[in-house]
């Protein structure tokens, strides 16, 4: 996996090799790879001359630093109470039907991963979800079909 090695090195050159560089480097890996493998963590530990257990601790602390392989587009549907009361369940069912996967799973073509997340701060416009870094709010089954359909066709 020389690419990861190279990526980690580039990120370290950019963000530095101190303890406080750890988070931006891990975020950099996520935006390239969608997840941080054990190999990537080992490389980060080596580049920053720190313990791999500490890298692992940081990676597992933040929900958005995934440590398992993810699809190109990670859908995170809010599961917290406001969105739940505003109809999150139907949204979830619609996505599951469209992509033929359940929460925690990735489509066969590795394009989508479906996850739940805690409150996104869009409660006033729930139900809300993220696809990678973009927020989608006031979702209805129709609206979410349209959004996902667009990702399926055009990206």
């Amino acid at each position: 996996m020389p690419e990861i090695k190279e990526l980690v090195k580039q990120l370290a050159d950019k963000h530095g090799r101190n303890r406080e560089s750890l988070l931006p480097i891990l975020q950099g890996i996520i935006s390239e790879e969608r997840y941080i493998s054990d190999f990537a963590m080992t490389e980060v530990a080596r580049e920053l001359d720190m313990s791999a257990a500490l890298v692992y601790g940081t990676a597992t602390f933040y929900s958005f630093l995934d440590t398992e392989p993810r699809g190109k587009y990670v859908i995170r549907l809010c599961r917290t109470i406001t969105c739940d009361m505003k109809g999150k369940k139907q949204i979830l069912r619609t996505i599951e039907d469209l992509l033929k996967i359940e929460i925690g799973e990735t489509t066969k073509d590795k394009k989508f991963t479906l996850l739940e997340t805690n409150c996104l701060g869009w409660c006033h416009k729930g139900p809300a979800m993220l696809i990678n870094d973009d927020a989608y709010t006031e979702l209805t089954p129709e609206k979410v079909s349209e959004i996902i359909g667009d990702y399926m066709k055009n990206r």
Binding site: M50, S51, A53, L54, Y56, G57, T60, F61
Partner: peptide
């Protein structure tokens, strides 16, 4: 200076 043990998850 080994840090074989760390704190994971939250």
């Amino acid at each position: 200076h080994v840090s074989a043990l760390g704190v994971a998850y939250k």
